[in-house]
Design a protein around this nucleic acid. Sequence first.
DNA 1: TTGTAGGCGTTATCAA
DNA 2: TTGATAACGCCTACAA
Lengths: 341, 341
Amino acid sequence: MMTVTIRDIAKKLGLSIGAVSRALDGYPDISEETRQRVVEAAKEMGYVPNQAARHLRRQKADAIGYILPASTPRFTDPFFSEFIAGLGDETSQHPYDLLISIASPGEELEKRIYQDWAHSRKVDGFILTHMHLNDWRVSYLSEIRTPFTALESISEAGEFPRVEVNRQGGMLELIDHLCRQGFHRIAYLGGPSELQIQAALYEGYLRGLERNGLDFHQGLVSFGDLTCVGGYEASKRLLSIANPPDAIVCINDESAFGVLHAAHEMNLSMGKDLAVAGFDGVQETKFTEPPLTTLDIPVYDIARQLVKMLVSEIQGVKIPEHQVVYQPRLLVRESTGGNPS
Amino acid sequence: MMTVTIRDIAKKLGLSIGAVSRALDGYPDISEETRQRVVEAAKEMGYVPNQAARHLRRQKADAIGYILPASTPRFTDPFFSEFIAGLGDETSQHPYDLLISIASPGEELEKRIYQDWAHSRKVDGFILTHMHLNDWRVSYLSEIRTPFTALESISEAGEFPRVEVNRQGGMLELIDHLCRQGFHRIAYLGGPSELQIQAALYEGYLRGLERNGLDFHQGLVSFGDLTCVGGYEASKRLLSIANPPDAIVCINDESAFGVLHAAHEMNLSMGKDLAVAGFDGVQETKFTEPPLTTLDIPVYDIARQLVKMLVSEIQGVKIPEHQVVYQPRLLVRESTGGNPS
DNA sequence: TTGTAGGCGTTATCAA
DNA sequence: TTGATAACGCCTACAA
């Protein structure tokens, strides 16, 4: 693979490298004719600009970073497939590159990657998800003046661009729905306590109980780790108490899958003896037995929105939609006694 | 963010930038004492090498690329979450970066990305999955001498490093299992015909029928698109023929999820009226109703293996495991009448 | 409208 | 053992 540079093009055309460079970048101070010649020669010779040189010169990477919050080695949440697809599709429109890495939240490695990528200028900005309460990344990235956008669930302090999902509102709607269906002993199956989404949903759960005149019982609250297995185990605990719940709302769909399995094992009639609901609206919820009621959020679109916002942030363009709010859509299915849809 | 360079360190320590550079890279021709001083100062000043400069100088990116074969916008196959996690974990061990993009196989965009990344030297090599029969990428990348490793299912010509999954063997084992369980009208639910895995599995299906003395029926073959929805629709076709199958083997777990749903809708007793099996062994298979028999492959480990092989390929190191073969592990569960496990 | 030249931060090849 | 210096390929003031 003989790499061809602007120098090669210049030599071939008897031009200076400066002229070639400007012609390629479409500067106005170059005659239309030579521009044509240059562009043509470039294409013909298979010229592709050397990224490293360009980055060094421009002091930017034209790349954004996303660090997957993977805690377990075999982690298969379909959320991430969809999210990454969205990130990839949007970045390639701009054109930016997408750098991916993995680190367990809170570990030393995570911190190292963010620092490293920012300081070595591998990326111009970050996409953040799975925010913690008082997330260190927000203050850190603000401090070193590295742009970022985040998927959030709570309006915290700070004026960074973000996509908010009104999880609390979604949860309220769900609790209302369950009450209308006649479920009144509603359990909450959450996630790690440091997660923002956990806090938001739990808050929604409490307010939902209150506004429907239901009592809170500590025994009806349990926590998993966002995986099927975690959901399975947490629901086992919930269902084995003296006065078990007649409904379980889950922090995400994966957890709910575990609940469905546990309920099947106990021969509970789903949607009657026990209602189950998830959160996220992944494809697979439509195909469980019974189909799972869930609060659907447009993961793919959110990912694209985050990239769009980040890119304009990096380029210093102020766009109107600085903070977008998505409202989860309640998909009622048979797992909460809804009609088949 | 004041970026600190080796020049800054040199100035502070009264050394030349050359000395600092070599000290940092651990060259032997530097006194232990100054090396110490330099390393310490670097850490103290928060020095991080500028990637662009390094790449430009070294003519390599220390990065590898993976292009997701996403065809549908909302694509949520958990396979990819796990695969990307493996890629990310292993690349960060080396240390390489992982560049991700998305493109539908066969489209012009796909070709552009491979070319662009290779020629602009954004990446030093590629990870390939979802190979096609006579995949253009193999010949193309060989031609431009860009290293790559691939996840394959068929021993095709070509001497590149690869991980092979013996899908055909797995399928044979599965068919044997179904026959032992008393299922004899076995249908095949495949995927796009240009896919290698499709060819391998179909071949295994045919050989499995033959070695168990079963007749082949064209009507017992149908094709989806590797998604739940595709699996659902394809199985509807299979189950609505005059003499429907008593078992359906699927090209992947996602498709099988769709089959389970269709079968539930038709009130079939799973594992008795109808056996269903998937392929991949994603977490979620353990939690379906009934739990899904599947051929488990270690997606995470495969991803790491591919990166390991690619990195040594890039570095010109010949490693013994040039071509690794994985044997799928048959997980018998209730969807094929197996005992609960 | 085009050419020239300096420099982005490193690494590597010389001398010293 | 260290210091100067020339690239790597590109962009961009400035000069012509």
